[in-house]
Amino acid sequence: MIGLELLLLIFLVFCAIATVLCKRLISSIIIFMAYSAVMSLVWFLLQSPDLAITEAAVGAGMTSLLFFLTLQRINQLKGLEQDEDNTKR
Protein backbone atom coordinates (compact mmCIF):
# COMPACT_ATOMS: atom_id res chain seq x y z
CA MET A 1 0.00 0.00 0.00
CA ILE A 2 2.76 2.42 0.87
CA GLY A 3 4.40 1.55 -2.43
CA LEU A 4 1.29 2.67 -4.31
CA GLU A 5 1.10 5.85 -2.29
CA LEU A 6 4.75 6.66 -2.99
CA LEU A 7 4.27 5.95 -6.69
CA LEU A 8 1.29 8.32 -6.89
CA LEU A 9 3.05 11.04 -4.90
CA ILE A 10 6.19 10.87 -7.03
CA PHE A 11 3.98 11.01 -10.09
CA LEU A 12 2.36 14.14 -8.68
CA VAL A 13 5.68 15.91 -8.23
CA PHE A 14 6.85 14.78 -11.65
CA CYS A 15 3.64 16.06 -13.24
CA ALA A 16 3.96 19.41 -11.49
CA ILE A 17 7.53 19.91 -12.72
CA ALA A 18 6.60 18.80 -16.23
CA THR A 19 3.63 21.17 -16.29
CA VAL A 20 5.85 24.09 -15.45
CA LEU A 21 8.70 23.19 -17.77
CA CYS A 22 6.64 22.19 -20.80
CA LYS A 23 7.10 24.60 -23.69
CA ARG A 24 3.74 24.24 -25.38
CA LEU A 25 0.81 25.51 -23.40
CA ILE A 26 -1.60 22.86 -24.64
CA SER A 27 0.69 20.03 -23.47
CA SER A 28 1.19 21.61 -20.09
CA ILE A 29 -2.58 21.86 -19.63
CA ILE A 30 -3.00 18.20 -20.55
CA ILE A 31 -0.32 17.29 -18.01
CA PHE A 32 -2.17 19.37 -15.43
CA MET A 33 -5.28 17.33 -16.23
CA ALA A 34 -3.36 14.12 -15.50
CA TYR A 35 -2.13 15.73 -12.27
CA SER A 36 -5.72 16.36 -11.19
CA ALA A 37 -6.79 12.83 -12.02
CA VAL A 38 -3.95 11.38 -9.95
CA MET A 39 -4.80 13.82 -7.17
CA SER A 40 -8.33 12.38 -7.05
CA LEU A 41 -6.80 8.91 -6.59
CA VAL A 42 -4.75 10.31 -3.71
CA TRP A 43 -7.94 11.67 -2.11
CA PHE A 44 -9.40 8.21 -2.37
CA LEU A 45 -6.36 6.72 -0.64
CA LEU A 46 -6.82 9.30 2.11
CA GLN A 47 -10.34 7.95 2.68
CA SER A 48 -12.14 11.02 1.41
CA PRO A 49 -14.52 9.87 -1.34
CA ASP A 50 -16.31 13.24 -1.38
CA LEU A 51 -13.10 14.99 -2.32
CA ALA A 52 -12.31 12.34 -4.93
CA ILE A 53 -15.64 12.88 -6.70
CA THR A 54 -15.33 16.66 -6.61
CA GLU A 55 -11.71 16.72 -7.75
CA ALA A 56 -12.42 14.37 -10.65
CA ALA A 57 -15.33 16.49 -11.85
CA VAL A 58 -13.86 19.91 -11.16
CA GLY A 59 -10.08 19.58 -11.41
CA ALA A 60 -9.80 17.22 -14.32
CA GLY A 61 -12.95 18.37 -16.09
CA MET A 62 -13.85 21.98 -15.52
CA THR A 63 -10.47 23.63 -14.94
CA SER A 64 -8.76 22.14 -17.97
CA LEU A 65 -11.83 22.82 -20.11
CA LEU A 66 -11.68 26.48 -19.12
CA PHE A 67 -7.97 26.58 -19.97
CA PHE A 68 -8.63 24.98 -23.35
CA LEU A 69 -11.43 27.40 -24.17
CA THR A 70 -9.27 30.38 -23.20
CA LEU A 71 -6.47 29.15 -25.44
CA GLN A 72 -8.94 28.67 -28.26
CA ARG A 73 -10.26 32.19 -27.91
CA ILE A 74 -6.76 33.59 -27.77
CA ASN A 75 -5.70 31.73 -30.87
CA GLN A 76 -8.81 32.96 -32.61
CA LEU A 77 -7.82 36.49 -31.71
CA LYS A 78 -4.45 35.97 -33.29
CA GLY A 79 -6.13 35.52 -36.62
CA LEU A 80 -3.56 32.99 -37.66
CA GLU A 81 -4.62 29.74 -39.14
CA GLN A 82 -1.17 28.28 -39.59
CA ASP A 83 -0.09 28.82 -36.02
CA GLU A 84 1.66 25.89 -34.46
CA ASP A 85 0.09 26.29 -31.08
CA ASN A 86 -3.39 25.95 -32.50
CA THR A 87 -5.73 24.23 -30.10
CA LYS A 88 -7.47 21.78 -32.32
CA ARG A 89 -9.92 19.91 -30.25
Binding site: P49, I53, T54, G61, M62, L65
Partner: peptide, 25 residues
Protein backbone atom coordinates in the same frame (compact mmCIF):
# COMPACT_ATOMS: atom_id res chain seq x y z
CA UNK B 1 -28.26 10.97 -7.03
CA UNK B 2 -25.06 12.38 -5.56
CA UNK B 3 -26.89 15.57 -4.57
CA UNK B 4 -30.01 13.96 -3.13
CA UNK B 5 -28.21 11.23 -1.23
CA UNK B 6 -25.54 13.63 -0.02
CA UNK B 7 -26.46 13.19 3.63
CA UNK B 8 -26.45 9.40 3.44
CA UNK B 9 -23.59 8.45 1.13
CA UNK B 10 -20.41 10.24 -0.02
CA UNK B 11 -21.24 13.29 -2.04
CA UNK B 12 -23.37 16.31 -1.46
CA UNK B 13 -24.12 19.63 -3.03
CA UNK B 14 -20.61 20.55 -4.13
CA UNK B 15 -19.70 17.20 -5.70
CA UNK B 16 -23.07 16.61 -7.33
CA UNK B 17 -23.28 20.18 -8.57
CA UNK B 18 -19.92 19.80 -10.27
CA UNK B 19 -21.11 16.58 -11.92
CA UNK B 20 -24.35 18.27 -13.08
CA UNK B 21 -22.40 21.21 -14.47
CA UNK B 22 -20.07 18.84 -16.31
CA UNK B 23 -23.09 17.04 -17.77
CA UNK B 24 -24.59 20.32 -18.99
CA UNK B 25 -21.27 21.29 -20.56
Amino acid sequence: YVILYGHISPGGGFSGGAILGAALI
